[in-house]
Structure formats: C-alpha cells, structure tokens
Design a protein around this nucleic acid. Structure first.
Lengths: 161, 161
DNA sequence: TTGCCTTCTTACCAAATGATAAGGCATGAT
DNA sequence: ATCATGCCTTATCATTTGGTAAGAAGGCAA
C-alpha cells in the first residue's frame, strides 16, 4: 500500500485551497506546514522521519487544504492515495480516526505551548524535545513557528549560551 | 437520546485524570475548560449555548481527561451517556468523527490566533467574534484564555475605548 | 576570482507585557 | 451597618519583544 517516491528540496506536496487525495509518510526528509496569515507566513509544524504528512481538511473531505506543505530537504516518502484506502471503507474510517486523533493531540499540546510559555520557554522546549529541528531547519523558519521574529530568536539564543 | 439536567454555577462536569463517559450539549449556560500548567490555571475555551461539552480524551478512549471542566453559570444541559451512543456502533463512530473534526478545526484556528496575534489583536478578535463572552465571563478568566495577565488585559481595554 | 544572495547576528530604540502594589467598587455574609 | 471578598482598574518599573538598520559569514553562480 503506497509507493516510494523521491522529491527534491522545495517541492510542494500540498497547495492551499486545492483538493488533494494523497498522504505521505516521511522516510527521509522534513516537511513544513505553511499558513498564510495576511502578509506573514506562519509555520504550523515541521514533520520529520516517521511522521504522516498531508492536509487534514482533504482527509476529512470538508474542502481544500488550508495550508501549503513544502519539503525542506530532498526527501524519500511513501505516497498513499486516499482512493486506495477507500477500497476498504472500514479501514479508511479507522485510518481517518487515527490520523485525526493524532493531529488533535498535537494541536492541544501546541496550544498550551503558546498559551503558557513566552518566547524563551518555547525555544527551550524545542531545544529539549526536538533538537534535531534546530540542526536541520533554518532558524528564521523556526522563528515563524515559535511566533517570534528572527531577531528575537537570535537574542534568546545568545542569552542562553 | 440524552436527558435534560440542571447543574449550578461552579459545578464540575469533568475532573482531570478521571475517566468520564458523559457528554453534554449546552441549552443554557457556559462551561470552562481548565488546564493546569504548573502553578497556573489556563483556560482552553469557553463553551456556550449550542456547543458540545466533554473531554475528547475520554471520547477517544485513550485515557482520563486532560482538563477540568466547570460551569460558570447555573446551566441547563442535555446529558448524553457514551454507553447509550455505543448501542449503535456506526452512529457512535460517526459521532466521534464529527466531534473530533469539530474540535480539530477549533484548535487549528485557535493556534493561528495565538501564533499570529498579539494581546490586543486577540482581545479585538474576541470582541468582534464572541462579544457575549465578554458580557458573561469575568475578565480575569478571559485573561487566562488570552494568555495575558488581568492587568495587561485591563490596559488593552482602556487603550481601545 | 568577483558579486550576489541567504542566513544569522548585533545594536539601538519604541512598544508591549509582566510583576508588584494599591485603591475603588460592587456583592454577599454576619 | 460592618466586614470580608472578589473583580477590575490604575500606576510604576523591569523585562521582553518588535522594528529598523547594519554587518559578518558562508554558499553559489557568473
């Protein structure tokens, strides 16, 4: 189920507002969820090896994607067509539930992350729990995830070490 | 399906870490989702008339509640036992999916809300989109939702009018 | 090589927010 | 009535963050 594909750095997996019928599992690489908020580009999250990537809105069948999803590295992915999953309706329902539950839990944690922590606290959390991100993702993109300007992130980093 | 119940102000619908097998629909009143973050109490959200209230973790059957849920007013609720819903497994699965999808969308919006807006922006958003909240919920509790101190919220309010 | 671009940092100042303290003003209990 | 309590505001000062500008370091192409 699903076939291995190779896409280059900067390849766009999902385009905002468009329907999409594909999900991916990352074998190697990083994907970035990009939300357009007025002028600014926010990063919703970075997915890495072992993570499932795709637009939940498309999975739920409630409209086009809310985000752009792009690769930050040359990547190896398992590409899964949703129409294949639908062959077995019970399996598909179960898959949807699992994916949705996973995203829900992630979202809930991230929400507390923003509500409870200031910039320094958020950076330290990533430093302790997702240090690979800081190795592989440019800091100005990390900043768009943390809700900080690159300058503020730089200041926070220098205040620590 | 479900029976009407009346609970007083400050009644606790859901207790953190405990299993729960009940959901509610609010006919009249307000419920507050409370997350304990170290010393602080955060407000996840306020549910009002027409909203479904309950712990998603319990609904998913993946453990006890992550939050306390309390009523801020004397309230009328429709109380729904999950065991009743389970009588019809297909219906229950559909119910779970609907509730989960609803919460997911709410979470995603709230996440952008925190990532993209500063305190003033967040207050203005509530002022325009959920003005009833500001009428019915004490401002210091609104502040715990907005991720601000009551003093900062007060300052923001006075800077507007 | 040179020049351009991206990434990251630093410096400076303005604005936003937190922390602490204090006071006003209701409401409810005794 | 008196008192306590909760809610809200205001004031002051320290800290954090944003905005702007500038520059250093490295990669990449011509």
């Amino acid at each position: 189920m699903g076939k291995k594909v190779f896409y280059p750095k900067n390849f766009q997996l999902v385009r905002m507002e468009e329907q999409c019928h594909v999900f991916w599992i990352i074998e190697k690489g990083i994907a970035r969820y990009i939300y357009q908020e007025g002028e600014r580009e926010l990063t919703g999250w970075f997915d890495m090896e072992g993570d499932i990537v795709g637009s939940v809105y498309c999975l739920l069948g409630i409209g086009g994607a809310r985000e752009n999803i792009q690769l930050l590295e040359d990547s190896e992915l398992i590409e899964i067509q949703l129409t294949d999953l639908r062959q077995d309706e019970a399996f598909f329902q179960n898959f949807k539930m699992k994916v949705l539950a996973h995203y829900f839990i992630e979202m809930e944690n991230r929400l507390k992350f923003f509500q409870a922590l200031d910039g320094k606290g958020r950076y330290l959390y990533i430093l302790e729990n997702k240090p690979q991100l800081l190795q592989r993702v440019p800091l100005h993109l990390i900043a768009t995830f943390l809700g900080l300007t690159p300058e503020s992130l730089s200041r926070i980093r220098s205040s620590i070490s």
